[in-house]
Computed example of a mutant assay.
Amino acid sequence: MNLLTKRFQRLAGKGLLIFSLIAALCGCSLEPGLLNETAAPPPQGESLLRVIFLDVGQGASQLLIAPSGKTMLIDAGNNDNEQTMLDYLHKYGIKRLDTVIGTHPDADHIGGMDKVIDETEVGNIYLPKASSNTKTFESLLKSIQRKGLKVKTAKAGVQLDLGEGIKIKMLAPVKSYEDSNNMSAVVKVTYGKNSFLLTGDAESQSEKDMLASGADLCADVLLVGHHGSKSSTTLAFLKAVKPRYGIIQVGKDNNYGHPTQTVLQRLKKQGVEVYRNDLQGTIEVDSDGTKLTIQTER
């Protein structure tokens, strides 16, 4: 048993075991817009749910700001994104995160989360029941411990609160898997007629089990699984989701070949309009409960 394993077990004994999954929004229609790179004031007009796909390079992070003012952060990019994440929170005026979700232990999803927890007031934190013997994961656990937070399990069936009118439910992981990607928390967010499905790095096995579970997967906006890897976004899953828009969180010139042509062609054939962080920077999708508006950084 190595030192990291012993440390993890000590933390786990203090109620810091890790779990997975979140839930999301439901809806339709959309109009492109332009996001101001230097400032991000709340949009004017009706009460909006803002779902912001932050540009963190070859990683993933989504910030949700509800009409109620409640906030949720799902993932926080890689280790070198710590200051970037703090800058984003400052830019969007975030002083408190009511809910934080780490979809799974991979560094490109939880790398910046330790600093976010250190520097921001946090209500609840959810992690899947998956661990990793890495310094990145250990650092996250230490930050959770220092803040006196108790980790709640992210798994299918968990429901979350972002205020009146918003329904958030975790659809995965449905069961336990050896592969940490398949342990990813998958969250469906519904606001009025609009919906979002945020999938982390969930791969084909998790997708298959979500389909078998009978969960309502239909969503207007799909966070394309695993940065557009061919191991995710199977045709059966895509047909069940029936998204109008697909968001791919991916970095420029990455070494993984993400997003793959296989997935891009599959999305195209299904009539999905694709937005990508590597091409358009931060992508914000706003919902008034009836229609969607998309703003991009570039």
Rank of each mutant, 00 (worst) to 15 (best):
D288R: 14
A154P: 06
Q58H: 11
G93M: 11
G57M: 06
N255E: 12
N36G: 11
A24M: 08
A212L: 12
Q270P: 04
E138I: 08
Q295S: 13
G281S: 10
Q145L: 09
Q270F: 04
Q83N: 10
Y177A: 00
Q265R: 10
D201T: 08
T99E: 04
K242H: 13
G163L: 07
L160M: 14
T199Y: 00
T282D: 08
I74V: 13
N255M: 12
Q9V: 13
T38Y: 04
N181T: 08
T233G: 00
A60D: 02
S176K: 15
L54T: 07
P259I: 02
P32L: 07
A130M: 07
K188M: 06
S204D: 03
Q261E: 10
V56I: 13
M170V: 04
P67G: 10
L3W: 06
V51S: 14
I110W: 01
L34H: 12
T134C: 08
P243V: 00
A12D: 08
L25H: 08
K167M: 11
A240H: 01
L4N: 10
G225D: 01
E284K: 12
S206D: 07
L25T: 08
A156F: 07
N81G: 05
E297M: 15
G157H: 11
D161V: 04
S287T: 13
R50S: 13
K269T: 06
L211P: 01
N81I: 04
V241A: 00
V174I: 15
V56M: 08
K167R: 15
L17F: 08
L264W: 09
T84W: 04
G271K: 14
K193N: 14
A154G: 15
A130R: 05
V151N: 02
K152P: 05
S184P: 03
P173M: 13
G77Q: 10
D87S: 14
I125C: 05
K115L: 15
L4E: 09
Y256K: 12
M85V: 06
G192C: 14
S180I: 11
D108R: 14
K291H: 13
N133E: 12
D179I: 05
T260A: 06
T153P: 15
K129E: 14
S131I: 09
L73S: 04
I125M: 07
Q249Y: 02
E203G: 00
L198Y: 00
K169H: 03
T99W: 06
L197G: 00
Q270G: 05
D288T: 09
Y191W: 05
L11V: 03
T71P: 07
H226T: 03
E207A: 01
G33N: 12
A212Y: 02
I94H: 13
M170P: 03
A12G: 04
S229K: 11
